[in-house]
């Protein structure tokens, strides 16, 4: 069944923060002006067709030309006025939006990778930096500056409910700011074509009240939970001894590679594979067994674990809340 109504959590028409709201206001202004212009221009055109059809003779005398010139001149005048209004509205909104870069406390950095997002939060000390992936948490009502760059090709971070987009360019750092005013879960998606899985490079944005956010951040600061059950221990060993540790990091263990997403708290994340599948045991197992089956072309290789090993590995990963 094909849904007829689009979801509202990835939409520029459903702002959840003041920047997106300002842009929506501007969009509304433009749409109204454009609609009026369209109706008028097209209306005149239709009338011209009707008249032109009724006319007995073409009329190209100088006198007509002079009269028409007044009309055309007037229409051009109106056009120019309308354009100035639009330009003015646009520049005003643009300037209002540029205040978002004023200094603030809260900084997040997002690094684009083919095809996932590395997200990190400053901490007072180096070991308190929070490293996570594919999930961006924001405290409601607070302005957050996001520093962007890319490790490979150009990506673009776009959270339509909160603000416009900004490219992540290798070798350059750029910034964008967000402020979520309504708590909720929004979705972002990479907007700049970045190769095979550009379509499946999503990001979950969680806007939550300050206390909840602080709690989340504190939890993320912690090193990973040590394995308890036998399965978990076995899973950890498999993780460390097979290829996984060559690409992923789990804080508190020997796995420290940054090629793939950090998995320290993978169990607490809502989705897998950059906002593509929900984080359930079945999905996790399917992903680990053959990531390319879910995201063809993905830069994570399939592996040949036995079902038992796979199960242990998944149990372990799930335990990393």
């Amino acid at each position: 069944m094909i849904p007829l109504l689009a979801a509202t959590y990835q939409s520029a028409l459903h702002p959840a923060g003041k920047y997106a709201a300002e842009i929506k206001w501007l969009l509304t202004v433009f749409t109204i002006v454009a609609s009026v212009v369209f109706v008028l221009t097209f209306g005149f055109f239709v009338v011209s067709l009707i008249r032109g059809r009724r006319n007995r003779m073409p009329d190209a005398t100088d006198e007509t030309a002079r009269r028409s010139a007044k009309w055309v001149g007037g229409a051009l005048g109106v056009t120019i006025v309308a354009l100035f209004i639009l330009l003015f509205a646009s520049v005003v909104t643009g300037r209002a939006l540029s205040h978002i870069y004023e200094p603030t406390e809260r900084h997040v950095s997002v690094i684009g990778h083919q095809w996932w997002w590395e997200v990190s939060y400053d901490g007072p000390q180096a070991d308190q930096i929070v490293l996570t992936a594919n999930e961006l948490h924001l405290p409601v009502g607070e302005r957050v500056i996001v520093h962007l760059t890319s490790r490979d090709v150009i990506h673009s971070l776009w959270i339509p409910n909160l603000n416009g987009k900004r490219d992540l360019i290798p070798g350059k750092e750029s910034t964008i700011a967000f402020q979520a005013d309504k708590p909720g879960i929004y979705r972002a998606q990479c907007a700049e074509f970045c190769g095979m899985q550009h379509a499946m490079m999503g990001l979950v944005v969680v806007a939550e009240p300050k206390e909840k956010f602080d709690g989340w951040l504190a939890a993320q600061r912690m090193p990973s939970r040590s394995p308890v059950s036998i399965d978990e221990q076995k899973g950890q060993q498999i993780f460390m001894n097979t290829s996984c540790a060559m690409c992923h990091s789990i804080k508190g263990t020997s796995a420290g590679a940054r090629t793939g997403p950090d998995l320290t708290h993978i169990g607490s994340r809502r989705t897998l594979a950059a906002g593509v599948i929900s984080n359930t045991r079945g999905n996790l197992a399917g992903w680990v067994a053959d990531a390319g089956g879910i995201k063809p072309g993905v830069l994570m290789p399939p592996n040949s674990l036995t079902p038992d090993e796979l199960n242990a590995l998944v149990v372990y990963l799930e335990s990393l809340k």
């Binding site: 842009i23 454009a34 939006l97 603000n163 987009k165």
Partner: peptide, 18 residues
């Protein structure tokens, strides 16, 4: 007219590449 919308930076930042 949609071109004029795109010419506006704030609007374009929303709808660019969509």
């Amino acid at each position: 007219l949609t071109g004029v919308m795109l010419a506006s930076v704030p609007i374009d930042l929303q709808v660019h590449d969509t």
